[in-house]
């Protein structure tokens, strides 16, 4: 009996936990949307097929969808082939895809279709050829985090909210995301000055390049070191811009921290209240996928 009770109890607690989780998704994501990808792209399972015969058609199809919440304008794709064994009708083009928004629950999707042809492999038994597909695109992360402002921390009155560090594991519908903020209310004169330590992380597997230079990656040009892993950042609290210790982040080790504070002092009479902290990150993102195919000899 006790076992049944305990089992019912655990089911109830699980449902309750999930309910609470769904109601408070913001505290895990920090945005209207979650996810850690910008453009998601992959080769069609059968195009190119895993095996093709020499001197026969090699259809290539790549699905690209914008799973993030930012629009991609003038992104560049580049199809890499081993020209000595495959020829294709086109290798590079620009790409524009709208991201998801409250009005559009799904971002744009497209297919890139390329006609290819396998060349002769001669008398060899066949060759494994590698196709690569790279996408380079400018992107933005907009993290809207509800944060607590307590203008009178020493007051014993009942507060609307409490000032606590927040972590976000689910991303903000972009490959770069805010993963942690540590707020501090610094008491000054008749009020407080809010300060934040914000941690930004590369949540996907791509390369970060400044948005002005990101297309260089897909065109094989040299990217200056100072343009790699660079992100432009803007932080505001209720539309009021915060002053940060840097306006460019460097994610060379995969993550970076930022210190920001409000310029003015919030008077203590305002009490405690929730306020949106907006972190806007602008960057370029580049990623490559590959697929191996076997070109078989007809002999």
């Amino acid at each position: 009996m006790s076992r049944i009770f305990s089992s019912k109890k655990s089911v109830f607690l699980t449902i309750l936990f999930l309910f609470v989780l769904s109601c408070t998704s913001d505290i895990f994501s920090g945005s209207e949307f979650t996810g850690s990808k910008g453009l998601n792209f992959y080769f069609d399972n059968n195009a190119p097929p895993a095996y093709v015969y020499e001197e026969s058609a090699v259809p290539i199809r790549i699905f690209v969808e914008n799973t993030g919440a930012s629009n991609v304008v003038n992104g560049v794709y580049s199809l890499g082939i081993e020209e000595q064994y495959i020829k294709v009708d086109k290798k590079t083009d620009t790409i524009n895809l709208k991201g998801k928004s409250l009005e559009r629950p799904y971002g744009d999707q497209t297919q890139i279709i390329v006609e290819g042809k396998a060349k002769s492999v001669g008398s060899q038994e066949g060759i494994n050829s590698v196709l690569s597909f790279s996408l380079c695109y400018p992107y933005e992360t907009k993290a809207n985090i509800i944060t607590c402002i307590d203008s009178n921390p020493s007051s014993k009155e009942k507060k609307v909210c409490t000032v606590n560090p927040q972590s976000f594991s689910a991303g903000q519908a972009a490959p770069i995301g805010v993963t942690n903020i540590v707020p501090r209310m610094i008491i000054e004169k008749n009020g407080v000055r809010p300060q934040y330590i914000i941690t930004i992380k590369n949540l996907d597997k791509g390369e970060i390049i400044s948005s002005d230079y990101v297309n260089y990656f897909c065109t094989g040009k040299s990217i200056p070191t100072e343009q790699q892993n660079v992100i432009d950042v803007e932080v505001s609290l209720s539309d009021e811009k915060l002053v940060c210790n840097k306006n460019k982040l460097n994610l060379k080790d995969g993550s970076d921290e930022l210190f920001c504070e409000l310029q003015r002092i919030i008077p203590s009479v305002e009490g405690s209240y929730n306020s949106p902290l907006t972190v806007k990150l602008s960057y370029g993102y580049a990623q490559t996928i590959t697929k191996k195919i076997r070109i078989e000899s007809k002999n």
Partner: peptide, 10 residues
């Protein structure tokens, strides 16, 4: 590199 992030050739 002909407009590619990397190339493989024979």
């Amino acid at each position: 590199l002909k407009d590619q992030p990397y190339t493989t050739n024979f």
